[in-house]
């Protein structure tokens, strides 16, 4: 597989004013974002937000109603054959061939990509080792577990060694161990300079894996940028701060105090404390908020500002957009 690039990152994918309508339904609505070369970009949205539609257009499997998608400078509708040599696609379903073994499946796709026997041997060896498919070589595809199937799908995508990989909900349905393994594979590929575009509902995982995030809702762009920017207070659109408060004794005084102060809200409770949102966004306002709590008779033992969770940031942004 290729060595990491040494040049400064450039834009590999440009999505510009992309729209896709299915009859009266606009699945994607004037969407624009970019994906830098070598980045791992998370693509987040609720069910039906237009993620899969967008990804299929990028992979040349569907045509846009309007707008353009360029991969390495080539329009996906004008040069689909060229784009397909650059792009790897991992759908959310495996794509099963009954009565085939894992090895036969990979060999079939190796042949379909035009590799000679010697090339296939090397590629399949690499892929089976990378995705730990060796022990499964002779197993029938119908007998694979969900995690094994995902690894096989991942392996199939890697056979042509694509530069740009599109993964649609790759971690869906995986147990925690399989998710960890998958994250490890993503890190290895990223270290090799590959560009990955990953969609998921599991925002915290994407936040850990991805350099950049793209949020969409109802086919429209909600946010694009670095995950760090979004998680930090003061990011665009942030109007609240999440704090974690630990108190001595009962939580009732804390609850009462929060209920009596506008802009405060209890997000989650635990035996000796709670996560709260407060309207303060800078240090001075936070210090005043702490003084307010103490003056209100709350026995504060610990007061800690938390990074905004991606889910909270996403919900805030969707509300602002709405």
């Amino acid at each position: 597989m290729n060595a990491p690039p040494t040049a400064a990152p450039t834009t590999l994918v440009e999505v510009e004013s992309l729209s896709r309508a299915f009859g009266p339904v606009r699945a994607v609505n004037d969407l624009s974002f970019t994906i830098p070369s070598g980045a791992v970009v998370g693509f987040i949205g609720a069910n039906g937000a237009g993620k899969t539609t967008t990804m299929r257009i990028m992979a040349t499997l569907d045509d846009p109603t309007a707008g353009t998608v360029r991969v390495a400078g080539h329009d996906v509708t004008e040069k689909p054959t060229l784009i397909r040599r650059l792009v790897g696609w991992m759908p959310d379903t495996l794509g099963i061939y009954a009565d085939m073994t894992v090895f036969e499946y990979l060999d079939f796709f190796g042949r379909s990509y035009g590799f000679s026997a010697a090339q296939r041997r090397d590629r399949i060896d690499d892929v089976m080792h990378f995705a730990d498919l060796g022990p499964l070589a002779d197993r029938q595809m119908a007998k694979l577990s969900k995690g094994m199937s995902q690894r096989l799908c991942f392996g199939r995508m890697l056979i042509p060694d694509p530069e740009f990989m599109i993964l649609d909900e790759p971690a869906a349905g995986l147990d925690p161990k399989a998710r960890l393994e998958f994250k490890n594979l993503v890190r290895i590929l990223s270290a090799r300079g590959k560009t990955l575009f990953i969609s998921s509902h599991i925002l915290t995982e994407l936040g850990e894996m991805c350099d950049r995030l793209v949020f969409i809702d109802s086919g429209r762009l909600v946010f694009q940028g670095r995950a760090d920017d979004l998680a930090r207070d003061g990011a665009a659109g942030a109007t609240t701060t999440v704090i974690d408060v630990t108190v001595a004794g009962d939580l009732t005084p804390l609850r009462d105090w929060v209920g009596n102060h506008a802009g405060w809200k209890v997000l989650a409770e635990r035996p000796r404390g709670a996560r709260l949102t407060c309207p303060a966004t800078d240090d001075a306002a936070l210090a005043a908020a702490l003084r307010g709590l103490v003056a209100g008779g709350i026995d504060v033992i610990e007061f800690r500002r938390e990074q905004r969770r991606l889910e909270e940031a996403f919900v805030d942004m969707v509300k602002q957009l709405g």
């Binding site: 299929r56 696609w89 061939y97 009954a98």
Partner: peptide, 13 residues
């Protein structure tokens, strides 16, 4: 039914 057409379209076949 096996949802393999998309995968085939991305190959050289």
């Amino acid at each position: 039914a096996g949802q393999t057409f998309d995968l085939l379209r991305l190959t050289r076949m």
